[in-house]
Amino acid sequence: MIITKKRDFKALLENIANYKSFFLIGCSECASLCGTGGEPELAALKIALEAEGKTVTGTMLPKTGCQTLGTKIELKKDKDACAAADAIIVMSCGAGTQSAVEIFPDKPVYPANDTLFLGNMTRFQMFDERCSLCGQCILDQTGGICPVTACPKGLLNGPCGGTNEGKCEVSPDIECAWVRIYNRMKKINRLEDFKKTLSPKDWSASRKPATRIAREEKKEEKK
């Protein structure tokens, strides 16, 4: 899921200083799980804005905020409340915020959150980054642990000289990715994979902005 954290409320207030009324949009997926854009957070932001003398014309929790078309359809029922607002505040990730930008071409839209990374939720509201969307997965060659993400240097061929009894030179809070990979490969009897030299990554596979039309591929496959 996409991990977000609340932006500084003061910075948000500065963004919206010139506007009086707002419509708030959350997201029932990642932002709800992160505690940054679910029902309780929508209600809390409403109260906080009202305490600052602002008006909230309505709030809405789309099923999946980054699903632009679906969110647009869901928002139909809030047409009047949206029309009454000077600006929109979105409490999801940057993608959800930009769904709103597309849906409201003539209204200012502001993000309530900072978007951090693609993460695994390991426990309640505890998140770990394990994949950095590199576009060409090498988990098949690294025992299923991603060094592109878990090693701060993104090394592909074993630990650097800074590895320290299983900890990373960058921070003792980080487990050295390459020691983890070594231990796992040993456990699953794949140390042979460790011996292979991995080639430099093809970074063109993660060039931005990316687009993808999967449905055309399906059509091709059917043919």
């Binding site: 061929n157 074993g158 630990p159 000289g161 020691v179 070594y182 460790f194 011996k195």
Partner: peptide
């Protein structure tokens, strides 16, 4: 190469690479 790296095995495998 770090001959006293701990653990040593992955360090030596990298040395060979």
């Amino acid at each position: 190469v770090t001959p006293e790296s701990n653990p040593i095995e992955p360090q030596l495998m990298k040395f060979e690479k």
